[in-house]
Structure formats: structure tokens, C-alpha cells
Measured scan of single mutants.
Amino acid sequence: QIFVKTLTGKTITLEVEPSDTIENVKAKIQDKEGIPPDQQRLIFAGKQLEDGRTLSDYNIQKESTLHLVL
């Protein structure tokens, strides 16, 4: 699982696999929060994550925290 922290300070927990794409993660966030993926920007280690890449591409491991910017 990974954590996604929103600007409001809320933390969302997501069940993911390293092979999941960023697009996939955004879809999971939409399921939980109702935020359309095209409004979501995910930041990890100061980098904006691209939809077509996977979590493992960015070396995002379990218990990692991503930041969600709208």
C-alpha cells in the first residue's frame, strides 16, 4: 500500500502493486475521493509523475507517500 497526502492534509491509503501505472493510481484516487484523474497531479520526491509510467519506474515502494496537487 502507499499513502497519498492531499493539500488539505488528508491522507488516503491505496492498495497498489509496483506494476501499477500512475494512471491506474489516479483512477483509484477517483474511486475513493471522486476527483477526476485529469485534475490530479501526483508528486513524489519533488517530481511530477507521468501517467504512462509505473510506480516501480519511480522507485515508489510500499509505505511511500505521494503528494496530490489539484
Rank of each mutant, 00 (worst) to 15 (best):
I2V: 07
I2T: 02
I2M: 05
F3P: 01
V4R: 00
K5P: 01
K5R: 12
K5W: 06
K5V: 15
T6A: 05
T6L: 15
T8A: 13
G9M: 04
T11C: 14
T11V: 12
T11F: 08
T11P: 03
I12V: 06
T13V: 11
T13G: 05
E15P: 06
E15Q: 14
V16T: 05
E17L: 15
E17C: 14
P18T: 08
P18G: 10
D20M: 13
D20P: 01
D20N: 07
T21C: 05
E23C: 14
E23M: 12
N24L: 14
N24I: 15
N24P: 00
V25R: 00
K26M: 06
K26F: 03
A27E: 10
A27G: 09
K28Q: 09
I29Y: 02
I29A: 01
Q30D: 05
Q30N: 09
D31W: 11
D31L: 14
D31Q: 15
K32Q: 13
K32M: 12
E33G: 05
E33A: 09
E33Y: 08
G34W: 03
G34L: 05
I35N: 03
P36G: 06
P37S: 12
P37H: 12
D38S: 13
D38E: 13
Q39V: 12
Q39Y: 08
Q39M: 11
Q40D: 02
Q40Y: 14
Q40M: 15
L42H: 00
I43C: 15
I43V: 11
I43F: 14
I43D: 05
F44E: 02
F44R: 02
F44T: 02
F44I: 03
A45R: 11
A45P: 01
A45Y: 08
G46D: 07
G46W: 05
K47P: 01
K47H: 14
Q48G: 06
L49P: 01
L49A: 02
G52Q: 11
R53E: 05
R53I: 06
T54V: 06
L55W: 03
S56Q: 13
D57N: 06
D57Y: 14
D57M: 06
N59S: 09
N59D: 11
I60Q: 01
I60C: 03
I60L: 04
K62A: 13
K62H: 14
S64F: 09
L66K: 01
H67F: 12
H67D: 11
L68W: 02
V69S: 09
L70H: 11
L70C: 14
